[in-house]
C-alpha cells in the first residue's frame, strides 16, 4: 500500500469546486508522507481529462454506464474495486452531500471509519476536525490497518490552479444493474430563487438566539437601517420563521458581503462555511465561547435584545 488517492466529486460532468480543495489536501498529505498523489473521477466515460494537474502521478477515469447518474451502490461498488487495485494508504474526498451519502459505506467495506469533515492535516498524519458544532477541535488518528478514508471540509484547503495534464488511466469496474437498489430522479429546485444573497453588500443574519418568531422584527429593523438583506441560520428557516431562500450555510446560500452582521448565531460549522468569506464579520452573542467569534472581526458578548435596538437607533442617527 502506498500513495494518496483523491476521489473528485462531479455531477453531470461539472466538477464540484470542493474537489480541487480536496486535491490540494491530498497533495499536502502526500508530501508529508513522501508518497505520490493520484486522483479519480467517476462517470459514464471520458472523465479525468482537462482537470489540469501535471503534479498528479495518475488520473483514474472510472468509467461505466451505471455511473452516469450517481447512486450509492454504483459508487461504492466501483470505488471498492478501484481502491483494491490502486492500494492507496489514504483516500481523500471533498465533504460534499454526495460524498456523505456513500463514503461511510465504502469505508465500512474495508472495516475502516471515514474521518469526516477534516479542517487540517498535521504530521503523523493527524487529522483535525470539529466537535460540538465547532466549539472544540479534535485530533484524530487512524488506528486500523486498511486504507484511511478522509473527507475534507469546504474552504479549509486552498485550491491551486495547476497547468499540464496528468496521465489518464481508464478503469472499468464490474458493476451489475441488479446491484443498484435505488432509482434516482432528476434534480430540481423548489422555486426560482428570488433572493440572491450572494450579491448583497451588507447582510444582517439572525440565529437561534432570537428565541421567538415575533422577535425577528428587531433584526429586520436593523437590516432596514443598514440597507441590508436579512438572512438566517438553518434553525430559523427550519421553524418557518423566515423562508428557506434566506438561509446562509452549507444547505443554503454562500455569501461574501462587505459586512456580515451575525445576531444570535452560534456559528455551527454548517453556517460558517456559508459566510466565512465575508470581508468583515460582526457577531453579537450572549455566549462568549460561541464559535462565531472565531471568525468575527468585532465581537459583542451581550444581550441582543438590548444591543440590537440600540444599534438600530445609533445607525439611523449616524445616517441623518
Amino acid at each position: 500500500m502506498s500513495g494518496v488517492l483523491v476521489v473528485m466529486d462531479q455531477r453531470g460532468g461539472v466538477m464540484n469546486r470542493m474537489s480541487f480543495e480536496a486535491l490540494a489536501a491530498g497533495k499536502q498529505l502526500a508530501a508529508k508522507l513522501g508518497a505520490e498523489c493520484s486522483a479519480a473521477v467517476l462517470g459514464e466515460s471520458g472523465g479525468g481529462g482537462g482537470v489540469g494537474n501535471a503534479a498528479l502521478a495518475r488520473m483514474y477515469s472510472v468509467e461505466h454506464a451505471l455511473l452516469k447518474v450517481y447512486t450509492a451502490d454504483g459508487y461504492v461498488g466501483a470505488l471498492e474495486q478501484l481502491v483494491k487495485k490502486v492500494e492507496p494508504t489514504h483516500v481523500l474526498f471533498p465533504h460534499t452531500y454526495q460524498v456523505r451519502d456513500f463514503a461511510p459505506a465504502l469505508a465500512t467495506r474495508f472495516k475502516q471509519v471515514l474521518i469526516s469533515d477534516v479542517i487540517a492535516v498535521h504530521d503523523g498524519p493527524v487529522f483535525v476536525r470539529q466537535l460540538l458544532q465547532g466549539k472544540l477541535n479534535a485530533d484524530y488518528r487512524q488506528t486500523g490497518s486498511g486504507p484511511c478514508f478522509v473527507s475534507v471540509q469546504a474552504g479549509s484547503f486552498r485550491a491551486e490552479a495547476e497547468s499540464g495534464e496528468a496521465a489518464v488511466e481508464v478503469f472499468v469496474p464490474a458493476i451489475d444493474a441488479a446491484q443498484i437498489r435505488n432509482k434516482p430522479g432528476e434534480l430540481f429546485r423548489e422555486s426560482t430563487q428570488t433572493v440572491d444573497l450572494s450579491a448583497a453588500p451588507v447582510i444582517v443574519s439572525v440565529g437561534r438566539g432570537i428565541g421567538e418568531e415575533s422577535n425577528i422584527g428587531i433584526v429586520q429593523e436593523l437590516a432596514d437601517a443598514l440597507g441590508a438583506e436579512l438572512a438566517a441560520s438553518r434553525p430559523i428557516c427550519d421553524n418557518g420563521w423566515l423562508p428557506m431562500e434566506r438561509q446562509v450555510g452549507s444547505s443554503g446560500q454562500t455569501v461574501s458581503p462587505k459586512l456580515y452582521l451575525a445576531v444570535g448565531i452560534s456559528g455551527a460549522i454548517q453556517h460558517l462555511v456559508g459566510m466565512k468569506g465575508s470581508k468583515a464579520v460582526i457577531a453579537i452573542n450572549k455566549d462568549e465561547h460561541a464559535p462565531i467569534f472565531e471568525v468575527a472581526d468585532y465581537g459583542v458578548v451581550g444581550d441582543l435584545f438590548e444591543v440590537v435596538p440600540a444599534l438600530t437607533k445609533a445607525v439611523l442617527a449616524a445616517k441623518q
Partner: peptide
Amino acid sequence: KAIALERVYLPEKQKKTEML
C-alpha cells in the same frame, strides 16, 4: 478501533477579534 480521538482542545482563533 479503526480511528481514535487523541485530543480535544479549544480551536485557535482564525481572526483577531476586537471585543466591544
